[in-house]
Design a protein around this nucleic acid. Structure first.
Length: 268
DNA sequence: AATGGATCCAACCGCATAGAT
DNA sequence: CATCTATGCGGTTGGATCCAT
């Protein structure tokens, strides 16, 4: 028996949202909330949309204080370090970046950071600057703390780490007491852009990096507390960063209640 | 100017989980 | 306890846009 569809796909609109739809949804939620039921909400307000689609639209775009684009290098570093530590748990990572959504973080990772970290070569100069899309233009000078320069996937942004003597990790702010902060790996361990175009060399360096993490992450005991002390409940460790699957004793993350305060110094 | 490839990102899909019954 | 339903989440896709030729 198959799973019941969440909505009648034949009778719901799909694809991009119109400004009118956005306005309907936004004003209703601002006035009445979601009513605790996304499924019935679109019918209530006369939207021919799936409840899931409404939820996604609200969470990713209509919600107040959402920021799009213009990721700072500091945010990039946080994303990379968390990805290395906990894998593709985008909601957790996004929770550390105020105003960012999991979808945004995920897209940013997939389109830029992954290339940074996993070998997009700096000498790819075909596209020195990326286009500035309308949403990005909207975000420029909106107090995001960025310079208003849209770094591209391959130019300044992509080459940022490549230009460094080695991948440089600023220290990650601990997310809870006793949380063993993923600490900057030895610089030489991730110098993946320096003559490491050879996959073998790169993998070796990654191995070193994760051996490093295997030590540092042993302190993640407080992961256990996330689910009432159950060491494995609620956590599929196969989904943890593939880079960390070899790590022994990796345990569950604690609840991440406080977003990382960007720009705050970190005591290690 | 036309075309094809690359890139980005909004949106969808489907699975896992939590909560209700 | 079993089943059903809604929600949350991560993976993937499709279309728009840009750049190089």
């Amino acid at each position: 028996m198959g799973r019941a569809p969440c909505c009648d796909k034949a009778n719901v609109k799909r694809g991009p949202w119109s400004p009118e739809e956005d306005e309907k949804l936004k004003s209703h939620i601002e006035q009445h909330g979601t009513g605790g039921n996304w499924i019935t909400l679109p019918q209530k307000i006369g939207l021919k949309r799936c409840g899931k689609s409404c939820r996604l639209r609200w969470l990713n775009y209509l919600r107040p204080n959402i920021r799009h684009g213009g990721f700072s290098e500091e945010e990039d570093n946080i994303i990379c370090r968390l990805y290395i530590s906990i894998g593709s748990r985008w909601s957790v990572i996004a929770a550390q970046l105020p105003g960012r959504t999991d979808n945004d973080v995920k897209n940013h990772w997939n389109t830029r950071l992954k290339k940074k970290l996993f070998g997009k070569q700096c000498d790819d100069r075909r596209r020195p600057t990326r286009r500035i899309t309308r949403p990005e233009q909207d975000n420029i000078d909106h107090g995001t703390g960025d310079l208003g320069i849209i770094s591209t996937g391959v130019s300044q942004s992509d080459c940022y780490w490549a230009q460094q003597p080695a991948l440089s990790y600023p220290p990650l702010r601990p997310v809870c007491e006793g949380y063993a902060t993923p600490v900057a790996p030895p610089p030489q361990s991730v110098s993946c852009y320096e003559g490491s175009q050879s996959p073998t060399g790169f993998l070796t360096e990654l191995d070193e990096l994760f051996q490093f993490n295997s030590v540092k992450l042993e302190g993640l005991d407080c992961f256990n507390e996330m689910n009432g002390g159950s060491a494995s409940a609620g956590m599929n460790w196969n989904q943890v960063s593939p880079l960390l699957r070899v790590v022994h004793g990796m345990q569950q993350l604690p609840p991440l209640e406080e977003p990382v305060q960007l720009g705050t110094p970190v005591d290690l």
